[in-house]
Design a protein around this nucleic acid. Structure first.
Lengths: 220, 220
DNA sequence: GCTCTTTTGATTGTATACAATGATACAATG
DNA sequence: CATTGTATCATTGTATACAATCAAAAGAGC
């Protein structure tokens, strides 16, 4: 590293800097599924010693982004169809809970934030900026999850989404009509605004499922 | 360490042995919430160097059993009322999903396993063996979760339960009538056997909630 | 006696050195 | 030619050494 991309990173232990850096590279496809993570090579590339690299890898391991093979070191996690299904089901379960809780706790400021976030998402869609699309879509969903007010559920959802982010990213690349997602978001906002939690739950389920089906099809 | 409690541990990297050992000590209360984990002391006590201790701590950190304070090291995680609520809500959400899926996928062998597990639980209850009670209760719930067939959900539930295990353990100590839990299990088994998933979901929700309420009350 | 500095010690964070192990290449043997 | 044994090498696993930092104690100034 030698220099810091973000000011805030300057105060983090190197293991966390390594963790964030490698996570980024895995999520956005620079490090590909199955690729081996060799400690010496990484420590040289990142300009730190092996110790923080190893500790960073331990964190990635628990996050589910790398798998360890004994004496063979760390590999970027790849995902089987079954694992993907399991993650998606878990995500749907928790995000369904979240949108329901969101309906109960929504207020004016939060509601505005949802609309703003979807506008930003619409903007990135019109620009066809994939990375920004992925990020701003995440941002929209995060407002719902934040409003639900359950930190643990949020933490679990972040972790689950990371594990499929790579595939979602690829999926968006090939999507015919991404504006459909914007309209789906709008419907969800509407249901939340009307406090129709059953409707919102059903919409978010469909919204998530349709993406999942596409990712799933692509994986096979 | 110097010797191995379990044969299987002999082939694990020391970081995993440290991880398992410390997790055990945290779960069963030998290491208490808030207690500081000092690397040198641990490495001397466990008979290994600081490196595997540090890596084991990284794993515990992600598991949510320890929290890191910058430059102050690792502490056994304590839990606030809010955090407990969040964990419980997440658990209820996922375990509700699991029991529902379990109803759809149950077969004869699994059904028998449930009954056997509850018999074992009843036995430990009659013996007033707290540790065995906690373990065999977990075992009963695990059969339901395993039958649901979603590995990710299982993994998440294991992690969530670990975070409240200490408190559940304390709670069982002071429980007036633990045989009630056995009867609740029986009802759940019955509902699963009759494929009445709505009933089973409702029962498990109440079963979990009643424990949670007691734990929650105790925490305050 | 109180407060602010300074020092010192303890502890974490980081780097490096050493050991153990598994993979690979090559040679010996049938 | 195939197969097995062996040597070598790359890489992970583990231990230790060094640096940075924080906290508490000691001391100086008022």
């Amino acid at each position: 590293m030698g220099f810091y991309e973000n000011e805030e990173d300057a105060f983090l232990p190197l293991r966390d800097v390594v963790f964030k850096q490698l996570r980024e590279e895995i999520l956005y496809g620079k490090l590909k599924p199955g690729e081996r993570l060799m400690e010496i090579a990484l420590s040289e590339r990142l300009g730190v010693s092996r110790t923080p690299v190893r500790e960073g890898i331990r964190l990635l391991e628990k996050e589910g982004l790398v798998v360890m093979l004994p004496r063979r070191g760390a590999h970027v996690a790849s995902i089987t169809a079954k694992q993907l299904e399991d993650v998606l089901e878990a995500r749907r379960t928790l995000e369904t809970f979240a949108v329901n809780a969101c309906c109960a706790k929504i207020n004016e400021a939060r509601f505005e934030a949802l609309k703003t976030a979807n506008s930003r998402f619409a903007e990135t869609v019109s620009k066809r900026d994939l990375r920004a699309m992925a990020d701003s879509d995440t941002e929209f969903h995060n407002i719902i999850i934040d409003t639900a007010g359950n930190e643990k559920v949020k933490e679990l959802l972040v972790s689950l989404k990371e594990q499929i982010f790579r595939y979602k990213y690829e999926f968006m690349k090939e999507m015919d009509d991404p504006t459909r997602l914007v309209r789906e978001h709008e419907e969800i906002i509407k249901a939340i605004g009307e406090s129709r939690s059953d409707k919102a739950v059903e919409l978010i389920r469909m919204h998530i499922d349709s993406q999942h089906i596409a990712i799933y099809r692509k994986l096979k």
